[in-house]
């Protein structure tokens, strides 16, 4: 198939970027979207031009590195997948495809389609853990049975890959879905209850400090999340936050 690409090019964080157009031929259905970009880049290199930089690593939907806005949708037109899992069979011959980086104040562009998501790391550093020593002698793993439903719910929250699509999808660039998934993962388990109040207060404080926007319940994040992280997590975090604030 033949494609018309419009891609955001930006030299570095300081410079101003712009959309650049490319025409690409010979793309096959079986190719992944990133393999299509590989073909584009190979062509650019052979012509002596700088290739388009984009973030990716595992190319199987688990590391959370890939992060492209395709025709206005984070991770592209398919639902419940990351862009590295997107295949060209989702497009048609002659299509125009617009490719941009995540847009958010807390995710500054580094180069072309690559953004800096360290703000997510800092939110997790603020409290996304259980304070147990790794060199200690914990009790036997089966000493505390945990209800399967709770364990499964915690797991579901923990499958967030930290990609940032929720932020990119949100008109306010809010990080509530991500932060609430992290808070929920621990809040749902007995091991995590001990520090629950402190955790939610610290993580939310950091989230606000990073400059993410407020949540106005539009739900766009849930729709675009490649891992199906549910809005219930936001509701849970709000409850946790409220009760923690009351406790002071």
């Amino acid at each position: 198939m033949k494609l018309y690409l419009k891609i955001w090019r930006q030299k570095n964080a300081e410079s101003k970027g712009s959309m650049v157009e490319y025409t690409l031929d010979g793309i096959e259905n079986d190719m992944s979207f990133l393999e299509m970009l590989d073909v584009l880049n190979e062509g650019l290199i052979n012509k002596g031009e700088e290739p388009v930089e984009f973030d990716h690593d595992c190319r199987e939907g688990i590391c959370g590195t890939c992060s492209l806005m395709i025709n206005g949708r984070p991770h592209g037109p398919d639902s419940k997948i990351t862009v590295c899992q997107l295949h060209m069979r989702s497009f048609n011959d002659g299509d125009t495809i617009v490719i941009e980086p995540w847009r958010a104040k807390a995710f500054p562009v580094i180069k072309d389609l690559i953004v800096d998501r360290n703000s997510f790391d800092r939110i997790q550093q603020a409290g996304g853990y259980i304070s147990v020593n790794t060199s200690g002698r914990p009790v036997d793993a089966n000493a505390i049975p945990i209800e399967k439903d709770l364990a499964d719910a915690s797991f579901n929250a923990a499958t967030c890959i930290g990609c940032g699509a929720c932020v990119a999808a949100c008109k306010n660039a809010s990080a509530m879905l991500f932060t609430s998934a992290k808070v929920s993962q621990f809040a749902l388990l007995p091991q995590g209850r001990v520090e629950a109040s402190e955790r939610v207060l610290n993580m939310v404080r950091q989230m606000d400090l990073e400059g993410f926007g407020n949540c106005t319940n539009t739900g766009a994040c849930e729709v675009e999340c490649p891992k199906g992280i549910s809005l219930e997590n936001i509701a849970r975090m709000n409850r946790e936050y409220l009760s923690a604030s009351v406790k002071g």
Partner: peptide, 12 residues
């Protein structure tokens, strides 16, 4: 033991 204490949600 360590991972469960850290809150790793293994299958149950």
């Amino acid at each position: 033991d360590q991972c469960v204490a850290q809150g790793v949600p293994f299958a149950r």
